[in-house]
Amino acid sequence: MTNVIRRPLGLWLVALAVYAFLYVPLIIVVVYSFNDSQLNAEWVGFTLDWYRKLFHNEEMLRAAGNSLLIALVASAASTLLGTMAGFAMHRYKLKLLPLLVLTPIAIPEILVGVSLLIFFVMLNITLGLVSIALAHIAFCIGFVAIVVRSRLSGMDESLTEAARDCGATPMQAFRLVT
């Protein structure tokens, strides 16, 4: 037997309004991307010419490829480093680590960007894909660390201890239990 929770109609209407607020502008942009007009002020007719021009523009394709590469590298590296930072913040209760990890989240993005630019110029690091990926990694680590630390704070430590008692190595207990 399932328990069905009835939610008030007003809650459904608010949820629908929020989703409409978020997604209707995106749908309009997608629909108007097929418009034959130069200005997109009014609908002239359906065309795929804009997409043909896009897929024949080498600079745009290279920029999209660079963005995808930066996203993949930054996601993988910040997930790994942020997980380690979140685990360290949970386990060791150091005072300086949360400050170092969470500062990029608290500081306005423009200030982080300018600071990283100055840092890269001081170290004579060439500005390009590597510096952009490093900047994204530095910015994203804090978000991953917050999520990992919050999930670890709700975890029962006796599970890890039980795995160790059953003969698991520390790495096995971390990988399989934590």
Results as ranks from 00 to 15, higher is better:
Ile125Glu: 10
Phe143Gln: 11
Gly128Ser: 10
Gly128Asp: 13
Met122Cys: 06
Phe120Val: 08
Leu134Glu: 02
Gly154Arg: 05
Gly154Asp: 02
Val148Trp: 04
Ala135Ser: 15
Val130Thr: 14
Ser153Trp: 03
Leu123Asp: 04
Phe119Met: 15
Leu152His: 01
Glu157Met: 07
Leu159Cys: 02
Val121Gly: 04
Arg149Gln: 14
Phe119Ser: 12
Leu152Phe: 01
Leu129Asp: 02
Val121Cys: 06
Phe143Pro: 00
Leu159Trp: 11
Leu159Asp: 05
Ala145Thr: 07
Phe119Arg: 10
Leu129Val: 08
Phe120Met: 12
Thr126Asn: 07
Leu152Lys: 01
Val130Tyr: 14
Leu127Trp: 09
Val130Phe: 14
Cys140Phe: 10
Leu134Ala: 05
Leu152Cys: 06
Met155His: 05
Ile146Met: 09
Gly154Ala: 05
Arg149Cys: 08
Ala133Gln: 05
Gly128Met: 15
Ser158Tyr: 07
Val147Met: 12
Ile132Ser: 08
Leu123Gly: 07
Met122Leu: 15
Ser158Trp: 05
Arg151Thr: 05
Ser131Leu: 07
Ser153Glu: 13
Leu152Ile: 01
Ala133Thr: 09
Gly142Val: 05
Ala135Gly: 14
Glu157Leu: 06
Leu134Asp: 03
Ser131His: 06
Ala145Cys: 07
Met155Arg: 01
Val147His: 07
Leu129Tyr: 00
Val121Gln: 15
Arg149Tyr: 03
Ile137Cys: 11
Phe120Ala: 11
Phe143Gly: 05
His136Val: 00
Ser131Phe: 05
Val130Cys: 06
Asp156Val: 01
Arg149Leu: 08
Val144Ala: 08
Phe119Lys: 11
Met155Ser: 07
Leu159Tyr: 09
Ile146His: 07
Ala135Pro: 00
Ile132Met: 12
Ser131Ile: 08
Glu157Asn: 09
Arg149Trp: 05
Val148Asp: 13
Ala145Val: 05
Phe120Gln: 04
Ser150Lys: 10
Thr126Arg: 14
Ser158Arg: 15
Asn124Cys: 00
Asn124Asp: 13
Ser150Glu: 15
Leu152Arg: 02
Ala138Lys: 02
Met155Gln: 09
Leu159Gly: 02
Phe143Glu: 10
Phe119Ile: 13
Leu134Val: 00
Met155Thr: 03
Val130Gln: 14
Gly128Leu: 14
Ala135Asp: 12
Ala138Asn: 04
Gly128Ala: 10
Ile146Arg: 15
Glu157Phe: 00
Phe139Trp: 09
Leu129Ala: 01
Ile125Ala: 14
Ala133Ser: 14
Arg151Trp: 00
Val144Glu: 11
Phe143Asp: 01
Leu129Lys: 08
Ile137Met: 13
Val148Gly: 11
Val147Ser: 04
Phe120Arg: 08
Ile146Gly: 02
Cys140Thr: 05
Val121Glu: 15
Ala138Asp: 08
Ala138Met: 10
Gly154Lys: 07
Ile137Asn: 14
Phe119Val: 09
Ala135Cys: 06
Ser131Val: 02
Ile146Tyr: 08
Ile137Ala: 15
Val147Arg: 09
Ser153Thr: 03
Gly154Pro: 00
Phe119Ala: 11
Ser158Cys: 02
Ala138Arg: 10
